[in-house]
Amino acid sequence: MSEPKVREMTPEARRKVRAFLMTVPALAVLALVLLAPLVIVVARSVTEPQPGLENYRWFFATPVNLTVLARTFKVAFWVTLLCVVVAYPYAFAMSVAGRKLRLLLILCVLVPFWVSGVVRTFAWVILLQDSGLINKTLLAMGFEKIRLIRTQTGVTIGMVQILLPFMIMPLYSVMRGIDLRLLLAARSLGARPVASFFQIYLPLSLPGVFAGATIVFILALGFYITPLLLGGASSTLLSTLIQQQVLSLLNWGHGGAMGVVLLAATFGGLLIAAPLMRRRYPVTGGER
């Protein structure tokens, strides 16, 4: 039925229509299992049990919810910060290593991916439990036992290890493109190594830091399985609350409002971070 119309179009326009049509099947899947679910979540948050913003009022008026929301942000922040600190030297080593060593380092980043996330969380349970490897080592070294499982610390340790590859890879891809001769040039002009790092290398690597940090932060905000299995009642995150509202309490209105809050945090984070990733950071000192 649209055939005659297509024939009237210029070849260029026809090419565009054909190209668009190729994306339609994928978009149809998107509409059914992404768009429709989101619409339902948002709709229920403002219609159940009655139309209005009652569910949002409830969310922001209940202290427990605000505590959990703050905790979710706090955990995501610490996980991101730790990931940056740990990933930076590693990605740097990857970018300057020889071919074989680099392959080995990349392999170490990818190995965790060979086993599913649930199984990796299972491994952390083995390590973190009260009679686990970490506590046994601490005891053997003459230290006190520390409680790790069902605590915030335990959840953070597990999350950092699981999310680290998402920080290392973007950082590495940016660092690989940095011309190390710039550092040599700075050195030959009399800059001290520390100065040349902070004034030249760090600014050039910042887009990678922001790209990785954004992904890690967003994924950490929505983390579900690891906090559930490694954490306890005192380390509940927003995702768990949503699941409780919907599956245990069958309160779709409350669950929907919480979901919208989490979505807003996620996409707000993306909007703030997007320009930071694209910006070029000025290399300070020297000629302008």
């Binding site: 339902i40 979540v41 229920r44 929505g222 699941q243 996620t266």
Partner: peptide, 18 residues
């Protein structure tokens, strides 16, 4: 690309409803 950044539980709740 949005499915990658969607918080898993929000997506799961919505898909469950659908």
């Amino acid at each position: 690309l949005t499915p990658v950044v969607m918080p898993g539980v929000v997506l799961a709740v919505g898909i469950y409803a659908v």
